[in-house]
Write a protein that binds this DNA or RNA. Structure first.
Length: 497
RNA sequence: GGGCUGUUAGCUCAGUAGGUAGAGCAGCGCCCUUUUAAGGCGCGGGUCGGAGGUUCGAUUCCUCCACGGCUCACCA
């Protein structure tokens, strides 16, 4: 245990001071009848004089002391609750001697309950003139600086509570996060989709291309993976007869941490019986537009120095056409060979991984390397090659492509959807192709999931499926540069002693 | 993992061409019954991220380590 700082010692001494007065430094229930926001809404419209003359109720609120100014036999402070801050005015002659002394000894960071009536100061600030002051909880450590707040990025992530206490922007971002997720749920429930929960511990890795976290169950004495996607379980529910299900939940991927990646993140996945890629495009657009309008009140989103317009009518662009336009090679050509595509990519300076064995691998590589970075306004890029889409239905006209899309906004992927592959024979072949990739060194390839194939053999209706990265959408709407700014407790390396 | 970069008081930051450090806020004492980033006077608080090295002397220069940030690679 580290030595206490001078300020910590002083605050601990104040515990004794409170106990001398029979005051519990970490007190009890306090029944409030208002909060800082309600008080401002109800009374800020009146002038100082009006407030002085009119009758108004006695109000009780509680919160943390954020600023404090002694004025001899009086004093001011701002106390903060979840809704904001309100100034309190303390006069020696309005409180008991004990209450006033406790106020004078109170520290920034202490949590107090107060009772009083509203007034306005000479400067016109709405304030609560106290008739009672109750100490509720002692803060044994000093708060970050009252004017600048907590700036140190590392500290803001590691001790988010301090960030939330002192930085209004942080509070607003997380309030928006909550509203966005609530709007998602409401929209989907209103459309008749059912929210479900599926396992997070998976015996087999599947549903996406990613490296998993591995864990172990003691009683069963078997390994489990933390899910990289809920997809295969949700589709079992479609087999089971539910016609529209969704899950909003945590997903885990054992990969690098970056401004766009946290090891655990929140996804929304949805499956709709009798739907397809196109119905998912319609749903995605309507969902994001509805949520954005509801939460933000506008479809013009400022993100960094980009202005994104989410107005209806998002562009639809076939991946092969996009690559043809920006890179100059036509992957729709029937006679395009893998060798030719590979040569083209090599000339462009790209590296070809050993498990790249089809033209589709090259197409996707070219798209991600040269085209994705050019897409700013919301665009459905569709027609992903079959090689990288083991769970999506083949396009009926050209089996080299699938009926799959990714939603790209501001060069980043926000959603992924397709006409779900419901042919168990085809699905088995796809898994086998994935196993071959695994042998060639693709650590992210899907595993064979016989249990899932068996489910498909009982018959799954044609269906559309959709996944949306919730954290990234929240980043976009809250103009947050890093995913760490929209996740309360982002993962960081442990600081050792 | 690579490159660049940061770490000084509880917080926000200066600074030292190498001679063991300052300010504001916060804290302590005194004054002040409408202040508001309150004010005035006074006081205390730092193994300058850690460990080595160079040097008479290192917070400053060098090396390594720890933990961040940005970025590239991988991915959503």
């Amino acid at each position: 245990m580290a030595e206490l700082t001078e300020q910590e010692k002083v605050r601990r001494e104040k515990l004794d001071f409170l106990e001398d007065y029979n005051v519990n430094p970490f007190g009890e229930r306090f029944d409030r009848n208002s909060n800082t926001e309600k008080i401002k809404d109800a009374f800020d419209k009146y002038s100082k004089e009006e407030l002085a003359e009119m009758e108004h109720p006695t109000l009780k609120i509680a919160g943390r002391i954020m600023t404090k100014r002694g004025k001899g036999k009086a004093g001011f402070a701002h106390i903060m609750d979840q809704k904001g801050q309100l100034q309190i005015y303390v006069r020696k002659d309005a409180l008991t001697e004990q209450e006033f002394e406790i106020f004078q000894k109170a520290d920034l960071g202490d949590i107090v309950g107060v009772k009083g009536t509203v007034m306005k100061t000479k400067m016109g600030e709405l304030s609560l003139k106290l008739s009672e002051f109750t100490h509720l909880s002692k803060a044994l450590r000093p708060l970050p600086e009252k004017y600048h707040g907590l700036k140190d990025v590392e500290e803001r992530y590691r001790r988010r509570y301090l960030d939330l206490m002192t930085n209004e922007d942080t509070r607003e971002t997380f309030i928006l996060r909550s509203k966005i997720i609530r709007a998602f749920r409401r929209y989907l429930e209103d459309k008749g989709y059912m929210e479900v929960e599926t396992p997070i511990l998976h015996p087999i890795v599947g549903g996406a291309a990613a490296r998993p976290f591995k864990t172990h169950h003691n009683a069963l004495d078997m390994p489990f993976y933390l899910r990289i996607a809920p997809e295969l379980y949700l589709k079992r529910l479609i087999v089971g007869g539910f016609e529209g299900v969704f899950e909003i939940g945590r997903t885990f991927r054992n990969e690098g941490i970056s401004i766009k990646h946290n090891p655990e993140f929140t996804m929304m996945e949805l499956y709709e019986a009798y739907g397809d890629m196109e119905s998912m495009m319609e749903l995605t657009e309507d969902l994001i537009i509805t949520v954005t309008e509801e939460v933000m009140g506008t479809l013009e989103i400022q993100y960094g120095d980009q202005t994104i317009s989410l107005k209806r009518g998002w562009e639809r662009l076939h991946m092969a056409d996009a690559v043809k336009e920006h890179v100059g090679i036509d992957f729709r050509r029937e006679d395009l060979t893998f060798e030719e595509a590979k040569e083209f990519a090599l000339k462009k300076g790209l590296e070809i991984a050993p498990h790249y064995t089809g033209t589709g691998h090259i197409l996707n590589l070219l798209f991600e390397s040269f085209v994705e970075e050019k897409i700013v306004q919301p665009t459905f890029v569709y027609g992903h090659p079959i090689e990288i889409s083991p769970l999506a239905k083949k396009n009926p006209e050209d089996g080299r492509f699938t009926d799959r899309f990714e939603l790209i906004i501001n060069t980043r992927e926000y959603g992924n959807a397709f006409s779900e592959l419901n042919n168990p024979i085809d699905q088995k072949e796809r898994f086998e192709a994935q196993l071959k990739e695994r042998d060639l060194g693709n650590v992210e390839a899907n595993e064979m999931d016989n249990d899932y194939i068996e489910a498909l053999e009982y018959g799954m209706p044609p269906a559309g499926g959709l996944g949306i990265g919730i954290d990234r959408l929240i980043m976009l709407l809250t103009n947050s540069k890093s995913i760490r700014d929209v996740i309360f407790f982002p993962h960081m390396r442990q600081k050792h002693q």
